[in-house]
Design a binder for these strands. Structure first.
Lengths: 230, 230, 230, 230
DNA sequence: AATGAATGAGGCTTCATTCAT
DNA sequence: GATGAATGAAGCCTCATTCAT
């Protein structure tokens, strides 16, 4: 009766459960996903799930953890390719947007579910937010140290950056006709760099950071419509 | 049989239910608040609640609506006292922080519950977020029109502002020992004004907007950064 | 669809649940009785049960309590009709046997279930046993005080009495073809009275205590087959 | 692959399972002990257990059986050292108490679990009880035959003895601060011997039976009661 | 208007047992 | 002989909603 799909077998059952849970949570949210749903999607039995995980909550937590880890790893990889401090910050920003743009499900789980999972996870959510904010703050601090930007309250600035990013992604997730998340990058970049006191001249260079060949220097002062340097 | 206590009658039963639900949701979140809890807190019966509201969800929606309305009204009142465009934006910002600082419960419902209520409310959450973002955008647009700030993408900027505000309040709500929310205003103001391209000179004037007497004392020579390093 | 039987309606639903649980526990034991079973037997829904009781355990406890109370009340009523100390003890003994003889279900719940309910209830079981032992001890103490019997360790004696009673009833409950529980009274009475040092002469008077007209004095010395006084 | 540790092999795996099950049952009761628990304690796998035993129930039954056998053997050994009929009964009594006093775990399994295991085992429990009662009855019958005691209904008397023993041990098991089980022997002995019509003179000789050297010193003139009041 | 008993679908978790390896 | 992953039937409990009174 059970059809044996070699491709399915290759990945361990545990992995399959995780995957199934991942998309189930992304589709219906934590609370509205029944363990039965996950079992069905993973082509297992409820008992099977409880062999691999102690609880529904544990599955969720693991998912959060690894998803966040993946994202952080990506960001750090992208940042490592940059040497200029501001470019690092730009790379971080861009990577997050690009990653979510390509993995809408990931975004759903990390942004909507985290919030939607209820009080039980809020401490965890908080820690995650802090982790990302710290990441950003690190790049901002570097920028300050290297005198790329003037001294500023990097604590609040990183929170602003994270909050902004959060909101942009959340909106995109909930929009009727999403459009491209990555397209918001240039504008978001501009606003956030400005918020950190990055000189307008540097902002005008364009946000190519994070792409392969960086530093495609745009001539400064080009007052495009809709935005302006002072 | 039912004894009529004038004090009880003063506020309609409906109102009492709303109040009870408000604090119940704030305390335990939407999903973890049972209709029974609300009934008990409102000193009514479950049936009584269902006489006044068609569902638990409806109570929550109404609460969101009126809570948001109150906040918007407050903001508009504060903004109305300002004439200078940037001061208006500052007033909006400050009012939100001050309001939440004084009504932690309100913040809880509007920020944590909204998110924690699950998929069912996300469209609503989204609309609420949009409403606030639009409000902010209006002030930014005014500022641009009056040439107080250079032209900029007010759409994204307002989202950034809202996201930042959101994050700041959320953190404060989830912090172990909260501290004063209002104290974050100066730093947040600085970062956000800068993000909108407000001239450093204007930023350095200090964010007194939103308080009783505007006292817009223009400090001369705001060349010196006016930012604090970490 | 729900047939309305006036006789059923007369007793409150709560009562019906209690009754249903009582016989269900007696039939299958605590652990092997599902809440669903009780609901079905009480012609209610599972939710209905949980409206009246907080848990399956609570139902059981209440049943234990009231059942034990009833038995104790019966015993005390029967004892009250006796004046002579030894007759009181006899009445107690006889009442327990007679009661269980007439209410096999009661015995099942009180004796087998109590034990079979698992560790969770053992403290409770213990207390119940103690209660009965104390009851017996009281009568023995009275007998000692009134010099009807010689001083003796009533603590251990009451435990012996209770244990003996317990075992006799348990055996009867588990026997293939039970026979009459009450028929064991004369023999049990004799052994227990002897264990308390009641003079053989008094034992030989016959254990009519507990029946309506007491003190039907049998001529002493009648050595029936199978038992003997010394 | 499986490393062969001689020390492990010394006792067969089967034995190890039995031991593990024994203490697990004693600790948590039959129903609350999962097969997994036994497997873990026996350092085996669940599958391993099911290789040696057809079911959890079978393990329990075997445990009951062998435990009871051991106890009976002990009793018979102790009894064999006595020649006087009443001394035999005393030895039986004392051995049971002494054994349980030294093996609380054994008592737990045999007394509490037996009861707590649920309906499924009650027939078995019954048979066990009967077995012990028969054992006792045998000694009583001998005593009657040898005219050490007057003829009496040994059937009911043995049940009383067993029930009393049962209750005493159960109480000891469930007591908060147990005290010495063996210390209850003298009092229990006195009551039970009296219940069997053993002459007061003989009772007053003291219950030394069952200890190493019988030391059956017949104190003369045991007219004085020999009982203690409460 | 209000009450509160009743409903019943559904949720999470446990666990004895089986079986491919 | 042994392992441990998998099964699936139950089990207890929650709770939004309905409805007779």
């Amino acid at each position: 009766m059970p059809r044996i799909d070699p491709a399915e077998q290759s990945r361990s059952r545990r992995e399959r459960i995780l995957d199934a849970a991942f998309s189930a949570f992304a589709k219906r949210g934590y609370r509205d996903t029944a363990v039965d749903d996950i079992a069905a999607a993973a082509e297992t039995s409820k008992g099977g799930i409880y062999f691999h995980f102690p609880s529904k909550e544990a599955i969720f937590r693991e998912l959060m953890q690894t998803t966040a880890d993946k994202l952080v790893a990506r960001v750090e990889r992208a940042v490592a390719q940059q040497t200029e401090p501001v470019a690092k910050a730009e790379a971080a920003l861009h990577t997050v947007l690009a990653t979510f743009a390509g993995h809408r499900t990931m975004a759903r789980v990390l942004f909507l579910d985290m919030a939607g999972a209820g009080r039980a996870f809020q401490a965890e959510t908080n820690r995650l937010h802090e982790r990302f904010a710290e990441l950003i703050r690190g790049y901002l601090d570097e920028a300050v140290e290297s005198r790329a930007i003037a001294p500023l309250d990097t604590a609040i600035t990183s929170v602003v950056w994270f909050g902004a990013l959060n909101e942009v992604v959340a909106r995109w997730l909930l929009a009727d006709k999403p459009g491209s998340l990555e397209d918001t990058y240039p504008a978001l970049r501009e606003v956030l760099l400005r918020s950190a006191g990055v000189p307008e001249a540097r902002i005008a260079q364009g946000g190519t950071a994070g792409r392969e060949a960086p530093s495609r220097q745009t001539v400064p002062g080009g007052a495009e419509p809709g935005r302006r340097s002072r």
